[in-house]
């Protein structure tokens, strides 16, 4: 037990304030919706989301399951982490597979091999099939300029679409989750967190992460200025050569479009120091899909992407 000094003012640390805000958002959504689900990719943001959710409902179980949209191009360490986490905490997991859609022709492989944009259809189908009415996403407003515009409770129409010009006003912390049948709401508990906050929180809470977030020796090849991992998904191609470098991942997504960064950061402290000194945003440094056009993220979000 901590001794309380009643004279000194009560002030919440920055990370504790963010955690409390996220817990409030989880509890609001769990109470207001009938069938929420948490998007879990095994990336750091979804891991932090799940961690806060478990704390928010302790000592009860998290009152919703997880949904993973599997591109088929996963890092094995991340899938292993996902399955271990699900088993350890007795969670429910649904997996929507992009590969199934490609196999039966509902989706076609893109020329560049990137499957990130292909996730939208399986995601929306899973939302419809399970009648999920609230979908927790790990999106943060500091990630990208279109995300910076999004509400905490973000309404999607019956086609899963986001209309950035017609967002609902969102005042104080009074989240309005009302929606018509067929519509659903994306809920972003980490809206106000920055990349640095996420890492500092991971350190504070001693949260375990997949190893690929830490520096390791890896065979990589260069494409569009990024270090990619070779694989069946389509690399390296002519003229691209494999080399072994010390790298780590700053984001974890589809293998075909998520780049590694040169790094020797082996501990959380090293990573925090490295991120604080980084001159590139995490998506700018690691995501090919956002480099495609000026409004790539906005366009994908409009269609129903995460």
């Amino acid at each position: 037990m901590t001794v309380v000094d009643t004279v000194s003012p009560l002030r919440l640390s920055h990370l504790d304030a963010l955690e409390s805000e996220a817990a409030h958002i989880f509890r609001e959504a769990a109470a207001e919706f009938e069938r929420p689900v948490l998007l879990f990719s095994g990336g750091k943001d979804s891991i932090v989301m799940l961690h806060v959710a478990m704390k928010a409902f302790w000592p009860a179980k998290v009152p919703f399951g997880l949904l993973h949209v599997d591109t088929g191009h996963n890092f094995p360490e991340v899938l292993e982490y996902r399955d271990r986490t699900v088993a350890e905490h007795g969670l429910r997991l649904e997996v929507a597979k992009v590969q199934d859609y490609i196999d039966d022709g509902r989706l076609r492989e893109r020329a560049d091999g990137t499957r990130n944009p292909l996730q939208t259809v399986p995601l929306l189908d899973a939302i419809n099939a399970h009648r999920f009415d609230a979908v927790f996403g790990g999106g943060r407003r500091d990630e990208e300029k279109a995300r910076a515009k999004e509400r905490v409770f973000s309404l999607r129409d019956e086609f899963g679409q986001w209309d950035p010009r017609r967002q609902r006003p969102e005042l104080w912390s009074l989240y309005n989750g009302r929606h018509r049948p067929g519509e659903h709401v994306r809920v972003f508990p980490l809206s106000n967190w920055t990349e640095l906050d996420v890492w500092q929180y991971i350190e504070q809470e001693k949260i375990e992460l997949p190893e690929i977030y830490f520096a390791h020796e890896r065979e990589v090849f260069k494409r569009n200025g990024m270090w990619l991992t070779p694989g069946e998904w389509g690399g390296p191609k002519d003229g691209e050569t494999i080399e072994t470098r010390s790298v780590r991942y700053r984001t974890v997504g589809d293998m075909s479009c998520t780049g590694a960064v040169d790094s020797t950061a082996a501990t959380l402290q090293d990573i925090i120091t490295e991120i604080a000194a980084s001159t590139l945003t995490e998506r700018g440094a690691t995501r090919a899909d956002d480099k495609m056009s000026e409004a790539a993220m906005e366009d994908r979000k409009r269609e129903g992407y995460f």
Partner: peptide
């Protein structure tokens, strides 16, 4: 343009919705 992140905002040169920055 650092905060006017929507396509329509950039086209029209005005802000339409709130942008949050940290």
């Amino acid at each position: 343009l650092l905060t006017d992140g929507l396509r329509a905002e950039r086209e029209q040169g005005i802000t339409i919705d709130v942008a949050y920055r940290y």
